[in-house]
Design a protein around this nucleic acid. Structure first.
Lengths: 188, 188, 188, 188
DNA sequence: CATGAATGAGGATTCATTCAT
DNA sequence: CATGAATGAATCCTCATTCAT
């Protein structure tokens, strides 16, 4: 058991380090040696936990998605769909503010910009995106059923719109540098 | 004179080739040899026209910006600001459809995701973005003066919004793969 | 500890190999691959020990200087300054016979002939030369004090003269190909 | 005839340019393009006059040797062998002062330091050196016959000695940077 | 397993030389 | 012949990955 815990600790430490390094330098410029150094382990050690650089990357992505998803999931217990939506969105933006670099990383891949990676990661991205999307659609459907939303709109299209707006905000944010002034404005 | 034309032709051919290759593989994975091969010249030849890989990239960006800007500029002659805006936006999306890969490239940099490049190109990007932005603001101001737009809104904020919406569309587009179904819908 | 020894051994092996290769081909024609091959290691390994080709070169120079200097230093214990001088000079020439190629290398730089290198190494060369020179002057001064040498001569000028003669011999030697017949003649 | 003159003029211009460039940068660092530019011709033109970089180099060497040899030859008309010797030596040093860089070049090859070149040029060097040497020996022999020199010394050895002293001076000169203070001192 | 050094494939870039105009 | 651009072989160096200790 201790062993298992130790292994897990190492793994987390490496992922943490990799997250920082990738966030700082991007995928290509981040060297395995950098990651190892940041994690305080030897270069070879990283390979005891991850097959290669790509898998380190993929693992970060997966871990992050899981984290955000879990956080958002919590808000699904809220009774009111509108509240649920609002809380989820805020959660996403809160995460953004906390983990800027990480999100950059996510976006850079999610956006499909880093081709080399895209080939490999797209499936992963899509799968996760689908999870969020399903959540979003469920909430919207709920709202329609409760009469809080017009029923003559395509749920899917609405979900796409919402997702698009979020992406747009992130995109602008990223483009302009970072702090999206209005992001934390109190919702009226 | 012939020489000058020939040189220009070579330069264009290389930029065209580079655009395709970068679009296909991204900056890092695109090899100078690939670009040369795609252009049908020897590897060394590329260096007769561009100092290095980075400059090839930068030149593509600059050339594209110029092209799009010129195209949009044409529509500025339109009397009606609203029409001007509409035409400009359509122009941008038309370009997108024609030059998908190229735009991906643009976005990948403009979004600031490819760190290594960002450091270098951001100034270029910003400068060009400012040009578009100025155009956009001028048009909006015009519209306000003509009473076609509410005058109690911040022109700058409006411009940011418009820019953001465009970016959002591109972003979603890029994310989902490519064809943004609604993009060419007849404007009502 | 073993590690440290192993590392040192590798380093020495590479320097030995580099010395041979540089001696055979000169700085420019010696390829890092040649050096690696001669040392029996992979090309990349050389870079684990030296930042680049230049540093390999510089290290050879430094190591050699140190070696010769230490050998000469031993003779400084001799009581009689004249004997000290004689022994030192012979040591230098002995070294020449043992390490012809190496000395060629040294001279080629010391003489300032390999421009590209000169820029970088001159300081190193000068510094070491100064050490020998100081030793030489000290010995001469000693000889003067003991009345073994005329006191009306400039010590510095004498040292320059001695140094010049040694250089001249080496120079002729190198020019003519190598074996300076008279070099090992028994000193009467 | 005009043609021939033109050709000769081009050839000389290129050699002059090459001399300057080689003197400035050394053989390896001097680019054919540099030489062409310095000569004010196109890169390809150089190849109309010389087979390759090496031949440019060889030609400089040959031309210089010829020049110095001819200058020294003039002094051979002097009656007194001692005067002849003195004049020749001074000629050599005068040349040195005028063409420092060129001489550096000569020495760098003559000394056999630039290996790549040495392989090729050594024969040329040796041949020319032999000419000087023959002149020197003839003069010495003459001096012996006239009773101006002890007859119990080996002429050859004397010639070697003289040559060595000259070389030594050049060597020290080159090593220390350049101006050999005493070189032009009035011979008492 | 951790370590950290060895490995070697891979790629940007340079530049002597060639050749069409 | 002069020109100057095209060529592509050649080489230094990086760094992901492997492996002996």
């Amino acid at each position: 058991m201790v062993r298992t815990e130790t292994r897990a600790a190492y793994r987390e430490a490496i992922l943490d380090a990799a997250t920082r390094v990738f966030g700082r330098l991007g995928f290509q410029d981040a060297k395995m040696a950098d990651i190892a150094a940041e994690a305080g382990v030897a270069a070879g050690t990283v390979y005891n936990y991850f097959k290669n650089k790509e898998e380190v990357f993929r693992s970060i992505l997966q871990r992050t998605h899981e984290l955000v998803y879990q956080r958002i999931l919590v808000h699904q217990r809220l009774e009111d769909p509108i509240e649920r939506m609002r809380a989820s969105t805020r959660e996403a933006f809160d995460f953004l503010e906390e983990h800027g670099a990480l999100f950059l990383l996510y976006v850079s891949i999610g956006g499909g910009f880093d081709w080399a990676q895209k080939r490999i990661e797209q499936a992963l991205i899509d799968e996760n995106h689908a999870r969020y999307f399903a959540l979003s659609q469920a909430t919207l459907r709920d709202a329609v059923e409760r009469g809080q939303l017009r029923s003559d709109l395509s749920i899917e299209r609405l979900a796409v719109l919402l997702s698009g707006l979020t992406d747009a905000t992130i995109f602008s944010w990223v483009r302009t540098g970072c702090p999206p002034a209005s992001a934390r404005k109190p919702t009226p």
